[in-house]
């Protein structure tokens, strides 16, 4: 199973990235590609669109990490025993339940020029409306904000379950020793939340790297390609209306794969180390 669904596609993508192929077989089912060696990769090096995508991916990675502190804050805020707290918790969790596509649509309307809430708001405050999705400098931040909305909810739920497992006796002991507020959080609660933090970092990094659906729904990578990320650029090149350069798309996929590998091997190494310590 692992071989068929994981290893084989990886090998195929890497092989394909050395070809120039428009995705069509002829009617006898023969492969029509042409071997170009490292041609696709050397083209990537000088491709301004690829550079933009890479930078945008970096923005996604950095800003997506905001989901951790905000999610933790909300989780701590909600981790109290008040009447009806379950309802509040589920309300806060709600964004994560909605499909990313719907999140994208909602935010696209929110930002829409002329009638979007955000546009009208900025128009009232500054006298000049800002159409985030039409502005090449702001568009990526606008999409990241949309992505953070459900991501924060996800991180929050991870921390909420983590907080359930925080040992009450340790809190009690810390309180007797006079720990309060930030010190309590930093020295007593957070260390116990380490497993939750670990998972939260992983899902956030993965969430940032596979940020395809929001880009596709909200801007199609535009205006003029300024909100592209690697995963979307790969799709555009391989399967988009004006693309169908399978080899070039595969080359982008390989680069994306290598970037992910850096993180994944980091995580695996950490897990392996934790296992050994036990």
């Amino acid at each position: 199973m692992f071989g068929v669904y994981v290893l084989w596609p990886i090998i195929q993508s890497v092989t394909l990235s050395f070809y120039d192929w428009d995705g069509l077989y002829n009617k006898d089912g023969e492969f029509m590609g042409r071997f170009v060696g490292m041609g696709n990769y050397s083209e990537l090096m000088t491709d301004p669109a690829f550079e933009t995508s890479l930078w945008n991916n970096l923005k996604w990675l950095v800003l997506y990490m905001l989901a951790l502190p905000i999610g933790l804050f909300i989780a701590i805020f909600l981790n109290q025993t008040v009447r009806g707290i379950r309802l509040y918790k589920s309300l806060f969790f709600f964004p994560f339940v909605i499909s990313q596509v719907v999140v994208g649509l909602i935010f696209a309307w929110f930002y829409a020029p002329n009638f979007g809430l955000f546009y009208l708001l900025t128009e009232n405050v500054f006298g000049q409306g800002t159409a985030i999705l039409a502005d090449p400098d702001l568009v990526t931040y606008g999409i990241i904000a949309a992505g953070l909305w459900p991501q924060i909810a996800y991180v929050m739920i991870l921390y909420l379950t983590g907080l359930n497992n925080v040992a009450p006796d340790q809190i009690e002991a810390a309180r007797l020793d006079g720990a309060k507020g930030w010190r309590m959080l930093w020295y007593v609660v957070l260390p116990q939340l380490r497993p939750a933090t670990f998972i939260a970092v992983i899902v956030t990094v993965i969430g940032a790297l596979r940020s395809f659906d929001l880009v596709s729904i909200m801007t199609n990578g535009g205006p003029f390609g300024s909100s592209r990320v690697l995963s979307y650029y790969m799709f555009e090149m391989a399967l988009g209306e004006y693309g169908f350069r399978m080899g070039y798309g595969a080359a982008i996929a390989v680069v994306l794969f290598l970037i992910m590998m850096v993180f994944i091997s980091g995580f695996i190494w950490k897990m392996w180390r934790d296992e050994k310590e036990r």
Binding site: P136, G222, P223, F224, G240, E241, G243
Partner: peptide, 23 residues
Amino acid sequence: WDRDADAEYAKVGMEGFQQFLVQ
């Protein structure tokens, strides 16, 4: 444009036209 020009060339062109109208 996108039928007269080759697909990839058409796309690069249209992005350029759009960018020119914005910047």
